[in-house]
Design a protein around this nucleic acid. Structure first.
Lengths: 254, 254
DNA sequence: CGTGCACTTGACAGCTGTCAATGCCGGTGG
DNA sequence: CCACCGGCATTGACAGCTGTCAAGTGCACG
């Protein structure tokens, strides 16, 4: 079940067969549990590592030289953690547990083997990386060009879209493992201002966010506030080798 | 020369041989010239296309439903344009020419062939995509957590770092093809405020930015202002198949 | 029952947006 | 050659969103 969650994002672009599945399962190392509030790794750590988030919520954060902290991304189960840092000699961001979380380290050599042996899986991983870029582009636009209420609306829709992808039964009410301080760090304002903004949204009957539980009261209003167009994953990536079947030869793997 | 620029970013991670080079050159289609201020494509265009920026500056922009515009990224010669949108059914961002620019469309099928036939090039393209993610993460943090002077400082250092990579002879004075309005859209403030901020930075003898020409007067002050750690590309990605030599069979290409 | 964390509230300062007007300059047409 | 025009840069006054500081509430936990 956990592994199924971990490959859900790849399956959004193509169906995976048994051979694909085995290669991905092979990535999963021993589990590690991280308490809420603790860091899996800090920015600057070298060399950067790669992880698979199995359970719980985590966040990628960046700290300025004056101590200010910006949260760059919320990671949900099935997400890869730490990938962007792989292009650099040291970790570019810190990985923080927003709730108790379970992660599995992925040896880089084993991750590289995917690119070595499966054009299909490499293609899908590339697509997910592109998807991540668009997610952060949308967040950047939201933070750069809108006020706090709009940013919160965009964040909430973003989270809801991502949660509903792994659990379609989620309705308009669901748990969000973020404190108001976390939200502040995500949307780039202070905790005090987040608090006032949430109260305003509640009064306006748009969004009710209390005690870690969210209730979407007026989705249309949220969409209008967020101001961003809806995003739909491509349903045709046949130009990538996603249908090739290059048999795996386990013996040749290291 | 142009093609050399176009592959410079891949070469940052590994050396390319003749076979690699040929596959990349094959991507280049017929050139297209775009006047300053014109769009190569608009967000929402479907299906999304992929392009290689040969000459000039371009920008990726996103427009809100209220007309506000956020500039997400400045593209320099050698950059791939439009990649993030490939994971979606419609273009997620618009591509705007900041100066007269020359681009070459890349047929998706041909781009896919790289993933089909070269694990090495696919790996390098993946790494560049990760690098892009970190660039935008840094910009997001800057916009989310700092004031305008700090944002401008971070932007300028970012541009300088990228310009110096393709032209190491660039000193502390160089051309930047951005109006104050462009800068405002990049750092998420108004044109008026950018103007005042640039004047302040000039008075403080930190940065002199006038008439499209920039003079870095105090680099240490800029770094301190920006507040972001320096980024160094990885010098060891040997866990990826960047040394494999899978001979190309041109006849088998479609 | 004391402690710590998250949340809440009020007053005030400060950064930034808005609006409006002006100056500058290169390009265009008469 | 000169008037006109549009884009870009600049300036001032003022409003408004957001940050800062400080204090207080409520709840979970040991």
């Amino acid at each position: 079940m956990h592994d199924a969650g971990a490959i859900a994002r790849l399956r959004a672009f193509a169906t995976l067969d048994e051979s694909d599945f085995q290669q991905l399962v092979a990535l999963a190392g021993p589990s590690r549990i991280i308490d809420r509030g603790e860091y899996l790794r800090h920015e600057g750590d070298s060399p950067p590592g790669l992880y698979l988030l199995i359970k719980g919520w985590m966040a990628s954060t960046l700290t300025f030289n004056d101590g200010a902290r910006q949260m760059l991304k919320v990671n949900l189960p099935g997400d890869m953690l730490g990938a962007p840092s792989l292009a650099f000699s040291a970790a570019t961001d810190s990985l923080l547990a927003l709730s108790e979380a379970e992660v599995k380290p992925v040896p880089l050599r084993m991750f590289g083997d995917i690119f070595r042996h499966s054009a299909k899986l490499a293609s899908l991983i590339f697509l997910v990386s592109l998807e991540e870029r668009v997610m952060i582009m949308d967040r950047l636009a939201s933070i750069g060009r809108t006020h706090t209420a709009e940013r919160v609306a965009a964040l909430m829709l973003h989270l809801h879209d991502r949660l509903i992808r792994t659990d379609p039964t989620i309705g308009t009410e669901f748990d969000v493992h973020l404190t108001q301080h976390d939200v502040a760090d995500l949307v780039g304002v202070t905790t005090v201002h987040v608090n006032r903004t949430l109260q305003k949204l509640r009064t306006q009957r748009v969004l009710d966010w209390r005690y870690g539980r969210v209730k979407i009261m007026n989705r249309e209003a949220l969409v209008e506030l967020a101001g961003l167009p809806p995003r739909h994953l491509s349903d045709d990536v046949s130009w990538l080798p996603i249908n090739d079947h290059r048999p795996t030869h386990p013996g040749s793997w290291r």
